[in-house]
Write a protein that binds this DNA or RNA. Structure first.
Length: 193
DNA sequence: CCAGTGATGTCCT
DNA sequence: GGACATCACTGGT
């Protein structure tokens, strides 16, 4: 079955797609409620990039990256989950790691997902593992078409290019000088690093 | 700063 | 199948 959403707006170069996702919204529906968050930090990865999971070709883990745009690639790292929005043409491994989001609705529930009741949560959604925790994204959503429930990606107007900063990616050793991280200037939910 | 973390990939029997 | 290294991270010092 084809996606009911037209994902052609994500059919861009890896960098352009990672930039375009800034400002777009993730809507998580669960337990009869909705969590909404705006993407404020991404990183570009593709199969020609030494730092990318896709660099050494398709495997069981990264297969989603080689599929069609608009699907979610979820993987585990150090016991945490991280997620990418798959971009570009199917057949070419490409995606944007979501590094930080800004809560729009349901921040209380996100905090509960993150830390439980009594604990004060300081870093709610800044960091790829943290936002997956906040939005209850686990590997059961790997390969999910973001057209619909339980997790939807909603296109939003782009930020003004003047507020988008590109910088070096975080936590990688290979190709670490590449400016493939994109974030919103002075946004408090962007990770401090 | 660094320990914990657990799946995955690679190379070897 | 098994041993070992690697790793797009987090949280508490």
């Amino acid at each position: 079955m084809r996606s009911q959403t037209d994902w052609s707006w994500l059919n861009l170069s890896t960098e352009a797609a990672a930039r375009r996702l800034l400002g777009c919204e993730l809507q998580r529906r669960m337990d009869g409620l909705v969590l909404r968050a705006r993407i404020v930090e991404t990183e570009a990865y593709d199969e020609d990039d030494e730092a990318s999971h896709a660099f050494r070709g398709r495997t069981a883990r990264n297969a989603t990256m080689f599929g069609p745009a608009g699907h979610l690639y979820v993987y585990r790292l150090y016991g945490h989950h991280c997620c990418n929005v798959v971009t570009g043409p199917a057949g070419y491994g490409q995606g944007a790691l979501i590094r930080a989001v800004e809560p729009l609705e349901g921040a209380g529930v996100m905090a509960r997902h993150r830390g439980g009741q009594n604990k004060t949560v300081t870093h709610l959604t800044d960091g790829p593992g943290r936002l997956c925790q906040a939005l209850a994204v686990t590997d059961h959503l790997d390969g999910h078409d973001l057209a619909g429930d339980p997790l939807r990606l909603v296109r939003r107007p782009p930020f003004d290019p003047s507020v988008v900063v590109s910088s070096r990616r975080i936590g990688i050793t290979k190709a670490s000088q590449e400016l493939r991280r994109f974030s919103i200037r002075d946004n408090p939910f962007v990770s401090r690093r």
